[in-house]
Design a protein around this nucleic acid. Sequence first.
DNA 1: CTGGATGGTGTACTTACTACACTAACCAGT
DNA 2: ACTGGTTAGTGTAGTAAGTACACCATCCAG
Lengths: 225, 225
Amino acid sequence: MNPQRYIYAYPHPAVTTDVVLFTIQMDTLSVLLIERRNPPFQGMWALPGGFLDISEDLEACAKRELQEETGIEGIYLEQLGTFGAPQRDPRERVISVTYFALSPSDHLCPSASSDAAEAAWYPITELPELAFDHAQIISLARQRLIAKLGYSTIAFQMLPETFTLSQLQSVYEVLLNEALDKRNFRKAILARNIIRETGETARHGNHRPAKTYQVLNPRQVEIIK
Amino acid sequence: MNPQRYIYAYPHPAVTTDVVLFTIQMDTLSVLLIERRNPPFQGMWALPGGFLDISEDLEACAKRELQEETGIEGIYLEQLGTFGAPQRDPRERVISVTYFALSPSDHLCPSASSDAAEAAWYPITELPELAFDHAQIISLARQRLIAKLGYSTIAFQMLPETFTLSQLQSVYEVLLNEALDKRNFRKAILARNIIRETGETARHGNHRPAKTYQVLNPRQVEIIK
DNA sequence: CTGGATGGTGTACTTACTACACTAACCAGT
DNA sequence: ACTGGTTAGTGTAGTAAGTACACCATCCAG
């Protein structure tokens, strides 16, 4: 097959998108990584992502690459920043527009693909050596995620549609890495008027069942105060 | 002159940087714009910016374009976001990495250049019609600037090295577009322990002279609480 | 019916924020 | 030298927000 050639009067960088997808598994903040099937950094772990199609929107590209490489779709996505150090990719000049994404800890089925030998969750405390500048990108994403906890409803993106207050508190505790007082936490959350009781309860073991709640404006991150 | 040709197996977008430079003039938040000397949007006003050199760092590109088109340098710069809607430039696919920047209201000498017929400050409330999606970029920059007022020391970037508390309060008032209580403002700022008295005073008219202050960590934006 | 586990609730205290008014210092003009 | 105008500089009392803290409820397993 004879590849088509694209000619420009000035050199153009390549543009990629990369996605930092977080979830919480077993009370641990985890990141989705793929094992690179091709050079460069073949066999190393990296963020899911890839080259922008020439008439594709940036966010659409991030979603598409995530879907292609891991099978995951329909989740919250937000632009994180753009990385373009001149030598970050050994092949050619590459500008990467990065996104961070959150997924509830259920229905997660990462799968391999043509570009990714394997896809897997890594606890953020036990990351392998990463390709490109992806360690730096993950570090920035984590900072941003934690910062947004304080002034947005982003935490709900890590829970299923209905959830208990204990589950919600656990999300905050894992991300902030500190224990929170149960009564104060519940008081503060309920004072914000952003969730309502479903009327149902959930039994998760041999103890009293918990009331379940849902977000008033689901799948939408709002800035609060 | 015979232009060199650059050939790729896949189409590459062009990459530009654009800078939203704010200052405060006459108690009004203003943005630096340039009048485009060349098509597209010839004669219209736009943000200073231009194409990335192939081995140039992104932030360096933003600084260079700002210097070339307006003569301004040595100011605070921070990445804002990346805009890449497929049709945002009529010539070809262009991804723009945008920065926002702040300048104290003194030593400002915008000047014309080869790409810019003219450079001028526009009050944010009286922007002309703008080229590309630059109106949207300015809108995002303004949101971000106001948000950062609340949790960072960014306001000091709009003041000279030494300043009075009244000048600082005026910056906050202009950006927040509301009057602040003098005593509470001073109390809150001083409680943060980020500025110190210089020992000098400044006479700015026929009234009592004001103590002047300076930032403990000058030219460095910190996150506070 | 008992023990173990998580769910659910209120109050007192401490800290941060808000509202608010007068004197001090300088200059200009008479 | 005195007056009026203009900005600089200061404290307190009330209100709202956040923190610390302990016990009973409900379910399941054995």
